[in-house]
Design a protein around this nucleic acid. Sequence first.
RNA 1: GGUUCCGUGGCCGAGUGGCUAGGCACUGGUCUGCAAAACCAGCUACAGCGGUUCGAGUCCGCUCGGAACCUCCA
Length: 493
Amino acid sequence: MEPLYNTYPVAIENSLTGEKEAFIPVNAGAVGMYVCGPTVYSDVHLGNARTFTSFDLIFRYLKHLGYKVRYVRNITDVGHLENDADSGEDKIAKKARLEQLEPMEIVQRYTVDFHNVMARLGALPPSIEPTATGHIVEQISMVQAILDRGWAYESNGSVYFDVEAYNKEGGDYGILSGRKMDELQAGSRALDGQDEKRNPADFALWKKASPAHIMRWPSPWGDGFPGWHLECSAMSTKYLGEEFDIHGGGMDLKFPHHECEIAQNKACTNHGGAKYWMHANMLTLNGKRMSKSTGNTILPGELFSGNNDLLAKAFSPSVVRFFMMQAHYSSVLDFSNEALLAAEKGHDKLLSAWSSLEGACAKGGQGFDVDTWKRKCYEAMSDNFNSPILIAHLFEAVKFINAGEGNLAISPDELTALRNTFSAMVFDILGLQGGSDSSAHKDALDKAMDLVIELRAQARNNKDWSTADLIRDQLKEAGIQLNDGPEGTSYSI
RNA sequence: GGUUCCGUGGCCGAGUGGCUAGGCACUGGUCUGCAAAACCAGCUACAGCGGUUCGAGUCCGCUCGGAACCUCCA
């Protein structure tokens, strides 16, 4: 059978070229994707989660199309300096000092938190999740290779990438972000510790560790630790090769992080790494991006528990995910309680339509063009992963399903196709989670509810409206909604 | 100051020059003992000013407003 990726070829908006391009993998049928993961020194906030949820959507869709995807997402567990100056402090060491913990305890704690949050949001684990500290050897040899080529220099125990030398000999530092060297120099601020560098645009490949610095490794240039940009170059090359397909990350990493990665890769391998660069946009709160350092954040845990002054109530992880999926990954998305409430209603409507669809019969007829609808769903996703358009199409199907009241005017084959595609889109691709009650609990609840509904039906037959309404109102307070229909009463939670 | 991007109806949010995005909210109707849900119908729009075009939310210019990056950050 023809793989789905041939039927619905993918186009990707490539940050490197600024164009939407046909996606052609380096190796046919396989995709190598690298996404810059979090620095694990504090709880992952909702903005972080959005980026990884966006790439989870992309990962899921590419897999669904039949690609063999290797998805690499790193954990940054080397602290890195708080600013580019020598006076800066290692974030993880700082947190460790504040909390009186070993640095790797900090790393472990927040890595576990990150995994928990992403799992609740329905994100699949990546194929490989390498750590920076686990790839010091690879990073040191990369530094050496760049030194050997003459595009780096050692200064006081640290090694810096020589941007000017790189660009003079054919390098294209600035290709991703559109920045020019002279503009960078004009715009750069006078920072402390810049005197080790020949040029303000130069960036650290290896930093000398001060005597108090805890996380340190021996190197040909003395004890130190790798520069922030280096780990991604080293690990993407190691696991995906010198040329791979997709490199993703948050928009805020475009410059300088990804720009530096490209320069490092080209310096070592003559290849820039990824063919397609993708940048997920920011989640804003009060019109400003969420940021750990400014404290303008909301944590996923607060959302799931409702424990935040900005929230009227708790929201399920699936609702939060649906909220994110309603916006395109490349657009800024603004967070608000109102937007979440609206998303929750839409989400519930979508999932309750799925329940109806599961139990629906096909009565024949041409009530809905399933083939065309299915094609439109795939085309939306293949067009740069346009989940909002996909959701709009899903609601077309919802309207048809609800109007049919369990008896849909399509053929049995079409019903099967509708179910399969609906389920694939909602659960496999968007990654939403239905009522995930264990089936034993569900059976017990169903039986109890059948009894309550029967008792209420008797009251209604006796025109005992006060009893009937009491049952309905009390159940509603408990979070269970009764729906009276022509064929009896059903309930939803 | 530089780079990139955005400004869509009450709110969120798609729109890759020409045909209803969608969700939420609201109004009227159908259904119901009353509700709810669902369905049907309606309702508000493209920041402003010019230009290109037979035709612009979509292209170009200017103005105003906002964001990200230029320093660690998804």
